[in-house]
Computed example of a mutant assay.
Amino acid sequence: MVLIHENMSRGRTQSGWLDAWHTFSFGGFRDPTRIGYAALRVINEDHVVPGAGFSEHGHSDMDILTMVLSGRLRHTDTLGNETEIAAGELQLMSAGSGIRHAEMNASDSEQAHVLQIWLIPDTTGGAPTYQQVDLPAAETTRTWFLLASGKEGEAPLKLLSDTRVSIATPLAGDTTALPVAGGRRLFLHLVEGIATVDGERLVAGDGLQVGEEEIGDLLWQTDGRALLFDMGARRTAA
Rank of each mutant, 00 (worst) to 15 (best):
H22W: 02
T23S: 14
T23R: 03
S25N: 04
S25A: 10
F26D: 04
F26I: 04
G28Q: 09
D31H: 03
D31P: 02
P32Q: 13
R34E: 00
G36F: 02
G36L: 05
G36W: 08
Y37G: 00
Y37V: 01
Y37D: 08
R41P: 01
R41C: 04
V42H: 01
I43S: 00
I43W: 05
I43V: 03
I43Q: 03
I43R: 08
E45I: 08
E45S: 06
D46F: 04
H47V: 06
H47G: 06
V49A: 13
P50L: 04
P50V: 04
A52L: 01
A52T: 12
A52G: 12
G53Q: 05
F54G: 06
S55F: 03
E56T: 12
H57A: 06
H57T: 00
H59P: 10
H59F: 07
D61W: 10
D61A: 01
D61P: 10
M62E: 04
M62K: 06
M62T: 10
I64E: 10
I64Y: 07
L65F: 03
L65S: 01
T66R: 04
V68T: 12
V68A: 12
L69E: 11
L69W: 11
L69V: 07
G71P: 09
R72A: 08
L73T: 12
R74F: 07
R74I: 03
T76S: 02
D77A: 04
T78Q: 10
T78K: 09
T78H: 13
L79N: 10
G80D: 11
G80E: 12
E82N: 08
E82D: 14
E82H: 07
T83G: 02
T83P: 04
E84N: 10
I85L: 14
A86V: 09
A87C: 01
G88E: 11
G88P: 05
E89Y: 06
E89A: 09
L90G: 03
L90C: 00
Q91Y: 02
Q91F: 01
M93R: 00
M93N: 07
M93F: 10
A95G: 01
A95H: 00
A95I: 01
G96A: 02
S97L: 05
G98Q: 01
I99D: 09
H101W: 01
E103K: 09
E103A: 01
M104E: 07
M104Q: 00
A106D: 09
A106M: 05
S107H: 06
D108A: 14
D108T: 14
E110S: 08
E110T: 05
A112R: 13
H113M: 06
H113R: 12
V114I: 14
V114M: 07
I117G: 03
W118H: 06
L119I: 15
L119T: 09
L119A: 12
D122H: 12
D122P: 08
T123F: 14
T123G: 02
T124I: 13
T124Y: 13
G125Q: 09
G125P: 04
G126C: 10
G126Y: 11
G126P: 04
A127R: 15
A127D: 13
T129G: 10
T129P: 07
T129Q: 13
Y130S: 12
Q131T: 12
Q131K: 08
Q132V: 06
Q132L: 15
Q132C: 12
D134W: 11
P136Q: 15
A138S: 15
T141S: 15
T141H: 14
T141W: 13
R142N: 14
R142Y: 13
W144L: 14
F145R: 15
L146G: 11
L146N: 15
L147D: 07
